[in-house]
Amino acid sequence: MKWMVIVALVLPAWSAPCSGTAGSDGEEGLSCVQHGALGTELLLRCDAPAGAARVEWRVNGTTVAAAEDAVGGDQAQLWLRNASLAQEGEYSCHHPGTGKTLRRIRLRVGSPPEKPAIECWAVSYPQTVNCTWKLESEPRLETYFISTYRHGMGAKENECVQPGAGASSCSISDIQMFSITPYVLNVTAVNPLGATMNLFPFVVEQIIRPDPPEDLRVSPIPGASKKLLLEWQPPSSWPFPQYFPLKYLIRYAREGANSNRTIGPYEQTSFTLTGIRPRAIHHVQVAAKDFMDYGDYSAWSPLVSGTPWTQP
C-alpha cells in the first residue's frame, strides 16, 4: 500500500527581514540574511542615498560591478545571474561618495527541500512504531522537520515525538493492535526557500520488523567433532517475547566456502548445527521475525565464528 500527497511552498528568494546594526566601519546600516535558490536570478536591494542613482557594492570586502539604476527613486539593486555556491558571501552596499555602509546582506544559496523519503517499522511491537526519513538531495540550507500522525485520515492529529527539535526520526507509542484503519504519518520539511510535505500510511502489523537477535554464541560440543552449539537472545528492544514470540533463521558458512546455507525458521533460541566439517571455522548469523509471520525479518545479527570440538 503506497500513496502520498505532496504540498510544496516556495518563498520569494529575495525576501528576508532586516534589523538595524552597526557596520564594521562604525556607520549605521541594515543587516540581513538572504536566501536564494541555486540556478535562479537573485536580486539584492539597497537603499540608495538621496540624489544618487547608484551605490557601490562589495562582496567579502571587494568591490563588484556597479548596481543598476535606482528603482522608484530610493532603491538600488544588484542582480546575480544563475546563482551558484561560489556567489555565497557577505555583500554590502555603500554610499558612492563617502563609502558609508548602507546595508549588509549575508547571502546563502541552496534549494527548497524535496519530499522526505520515509520508513516506519514496529521494532518494539506492540509498544512503539519508529519512523525515520531523509531528503533525496541535500538542500545546503538549514532544514528542520515537523512530524504528526493520525489514526485514519479524518482522525485527530497527534505529535509524532522526535528525539530533538527538527530531528529526522520520531516514534508513536499509543498504537492500536490489529486495527485495519491505517495510521498516516505526516512529515513536513521546512527551510528558508520552501516546505514540502509527505504522507506515509501504514498498518502496524504490516511493518513489524524486530531488531537483530543479540548475544549470539557459537560453541564446540565436547566429544562432537561435527557439531556446533548456537545460542542467542531475542533483541532487547522486543518488549514481550513471552507473549509475542519470535521465530529465527540461521545462516552459516564454512570459511573459504563460496556460498552460505540458510535454515529455519526455528522457535527456540538455541540450535545444534550437525554434519559440519571437522576442524573447520564456521561463520554464523541469526535473523528474527514475528512468530505469526507479520511484517519482515530483521537484519542479520553480527557475524560470530566457531570451530567444532577437536580431541586433545
Rank of each mutant, 00 (worst) to 15 (best):
M4C: 08
V7P: 02
L11M: 13
A13H: 07
A16Y: 02
A16Q: 04
C18I: 07
S19Q: 10
G20T: 09
T21A: 12
G26I: 02
G29S: 08
L30M: 14
A37N: 09
E41K: 14
L42Q: 07
R45H: 09
P49A: 13
R58Q: 11
N60R: 03
G61E: 05
A65V: 08
A66Y: 06
E68R: 06
A70M: 06
G72H: 10
G73F: 15
D74A: 14
S84P: 05
E88F: 02
C93R: 01
G99V: 01
T101G: 08
I105V: 13
R106Y: 13
L107Y: 09
G110S: 05
P113F: 00
T128P: 01
C131A: 03
C131S: 01
P139G: 02
R140N: 11
E142W: 08
T143Y: 05
T143I: 07
Y144R: 11
F145A: 02
T148W: 01
A155H: 06
E157I: 05
G164Q: 14
I180C: 06
A189D: 01
P192L: 01
A195T: 05
A195L: 00
A195Q: 03
M197T: 14
N198C: 11
P201T: 02
P201A: 03
P212F: 09
P212S: 12
D215Y: 10
R217D: 14
I221Y: 05
W232C: 09
W232Q: 11
F240V: 04
Q242W: 00
F244S: 12
A257D: 14
I263H: 02
Q268H: 12
S270G: 02
F271G: 03
T274N: 15
A280K: 06
A288K: 01
K289L: 08
Y294K: 07
Y294F: 15
G295K: 11
V304R: 10
W309N: 10
